[in-house]
Design a protein around this nucleic acid. Structure first.
Lengths: 226, 226
DNA sequence: GTGCGTATACGGGCATACTTATATCCACAA
DNA sequence: TTGTGGATATAAGTATGCCCGTATACGCAC
């Protein structure tokens, strides 16, 4: 049972993974906009590889819900309307509140300290791109002791799927500070082991995020009409 | 916008999909046991195709959680221990009770009739292989009006992931009749629009399934030691 | 006898080349 | 003028072959 650490610790072992990572980031930071068709030979030429690893990467991203593939029609960056965002956030509320409920009683104090450090890093961080990662790290740290790996996987997946939209939120400095306030409130409730309060803060936090995001997108027309 | 119906209605358009379907079924009905390594050239020869569509199929099955792939080590049928089963069922409880809660107020009577017909089909069905499909159809019919496509997708995914284990349950005729009784109780509660009762029946139903399954697997040693 | 290093074999990742399907456009007929 | 049918172009799906990484086993040295 030694393969695990290697496959997780070490960076991308295959070209497909590297391509997937680059594409994921490009989609997240808006370099590639929603709805853009992703042509295999085009990408292959840009990356300097053949189409095979690109195909694999696209399959992977499809599994993550970031791109959608129709047979013989190719792949495109998954267009997302406000309805889909509402769905994702509704699921996050469901999954993450459950994870928090399960995790909190078993959560070591060290993990809470770790989460707090992440919050400090967020305050210090200037690069918007890293904020999404830190945000995810904070949330996952709280759920770490939930004891259900699949649940954690689903949560992480939804964070990734929403990542590019979360970054829209962060361009709004007002939201960012509110978010951090809520994060610290949430952390405080966790330290008090007040599960009920913590969960309700979390739900409120996600609901605000959802509403802010939907209205921002409707205004700016960043998502497809439908 | 005409491509949708076709791509969904028509059968598998690519070899990769066909292969994925065959493998999924073979894994579900136990022809290929958990932990079995899946060699690309071996499968390619058996199916009479090249390794490429097999690769695609394996990627797809990996996304569904049925097989696990380690780079350079290849794919194997995802081994599943009792802990993983508990996780899946805990998630099913969470996801499906939420779906039912959301769906019930909007669920048309026609859907309930449809669900009842499925239950009759289950009683009449002799072929164990089709039971899993019908079981899934019944559950999904109840959640149909939940208004969250992603939630439905997650639920369907977990049904598929657990399919091969659900079939173990059905070899137990006693469980099968109990399950049907619970299904009809659940349906009755839905007809009365008694959400609270319906959800508690559903949770109980899933919890029983989980316990029966775990003990069956521990006894028979069908899953890996860990 | 044990431990480490090297060699060999097995298998998956990647590239190149070919096939097939679908969409678009143009022509011809109604 | 419009609709339908076919031809062509584009892009995905598929086949084959090679390369490289990893694992395992054997041998040599300590």
């Amino acid at each position: 049972m030694r393969g695990f650490a290697e496959s997780v610790m070490r960076g991308p072992r295959t070209v497909a993974e590297q391509v997937a990572n680059v594409l994921r980031e490009a989609i997240a930071n808006g370099t590639i906009k929603a709805g853009t068709p992703l042509r295999q030979d085009e990408l292959a030429e840009q990356f300097g590889f053949s189409r095979m690893p690109i195909r694999d990467a696209l399959r992977q991203l499809e599994a993550e819900g970031i791109v959608s593939i129709h047979p013989t029609k190719g792949a495109q960056v998954a267009p997302m309307d406000s309805a889909e965002i509402s769905e994702i956030y509704a699921l996050r509320e469901l999954l993450e509140s459950e994870a928090l409920r399960l995790s909190l009683p078993n959560l070591a104090g060290a993990k809470l300290d770790e989460a707090e450090q992440v919050l400090d890093q967020i305050d210090a961080e200037r690069n918007v791109g890293r904020w999404g990662t830190l945000n995810r790290a904070f949330h996952l740290a709280l759920y770490d002791a939930c004891g259900n790996h699949r649940l954690l996987g689903l949560i992480e997946g939804h964070h990734n799927a929403a990542d590019r939209y979360v970054r829209i939120l962060l361009s709004n400095l007002d939201y960012r500070s509110r978010s951090q306030t809520e994060h610290r409130d949430l952390l405080a409730a966790c330290r008090r082991r007040d599960a009920g309060n913590a969960i309700s803060i979390l739900r409120q936090h996600l609901r605000e995020g959802s509403e802010t995001l939907v209205s921002a997108i409707v205004e700016d027309g960043l998502a497809r009409k439908s």
